[in-house]
Computed example of a mutant assay.
Amino acid sequence: MCCSVDFARSLGLALLPLALCCILANLLLLFPMGEITYIQQDRLANYVWYFGGLGGGGALMLVPAVVFITLGKCNCCWNQSLMMCGSVLAAVVGLVGSGYSFVISGLALVQGPQCFTSYGWTYPFADQWGRYLLQPETWSRCLQPVHIVEWNVTLLCVLLGLAVLEFIICLLQLGNGLVNAVCRPCCYKQEYSLNA
């Protein structure tokens, strides 16, 4: 059988927990150390408000996940071909979403968190182009929220990793869908000649 519908469904099932984890990681970024006061005072880093994990790696990733899981529910040949084209489009949506999540998380990681220092509320690592990540002894510059650098670095690295996994899964389905779009006519010709 040329079309690997089961493969697409398994990819969709793999995307669901990844998307939910992206949403959770992004929500945790909004509440440093579980506190609500920083969001109320607008003391969060700018890139947190771009919702890379919530929108790109989360909500947008639910589109390909649902399409992949529901692929092949109808046995009609025309519908399966249409659904395979739909899975390719959904894979492209997933690639865009995971790419967005990756870029926003990377930019947020390079910029560093907004925190209270001896100079007031500022971005103490913004001019370092990410070098602060290799210098944990400088993280103590951030006095409030406590451990905000560790909090942000951990969650943003999680988002980067999840975005890479989502990108790979969507890329696999893009390849699977394109191969099946090319192979499917060949299979039908072979089936037709065997039945004749």
Rank of each mutant, 00 (worst) to 15 (best):
L155T: 03
V103E: 07
L60Y: 03
Y123G: 11
L156P: 01
L109C: 06
T117R: 05
A196M: 15
F31Y: 14
A25L: 01
A181E: 07
E137T: 06
A163P: 09
A108R: 12
G112K: 02
C3T: 08
A196E: 15
V48N: 01
G94C: 06
L162P: 00
A14G: 15
P32N: 05
L107Q: 13
F7Q: 12
C115P: 06
V164S: 07
C76V: 07
V93L: 13
N195K: 14
A90M: 12
V67S: 12
W49V: 07
V110Y: 01
C115G: 14
S140T: 14
I36C: 09
N46C: 03
L165T: 11
Q144C: 06
V5P: 02
H147Q: 09
S105I: 04
L28V: 13
L20K: 00
V153R: 02
L165S: 12
L60F: 11
I104E: 00
R141K: 08
Y192S: 14
L160K: 00
A8T: 13
C85L: 09
E166C: 14
V88H: 00
A108M: 14
V182A: 12
G55W: 10
Q190V: 15
L162Q: 05
W151S: 07
I104V: 15
G177H: 04
P124F: 04
G106N: 11
N79R: 05
L178I: 10
C157E: 04
L13N: 10
T70Q: 03
T70Y: 06
Q190Y: 15
L95W: 04
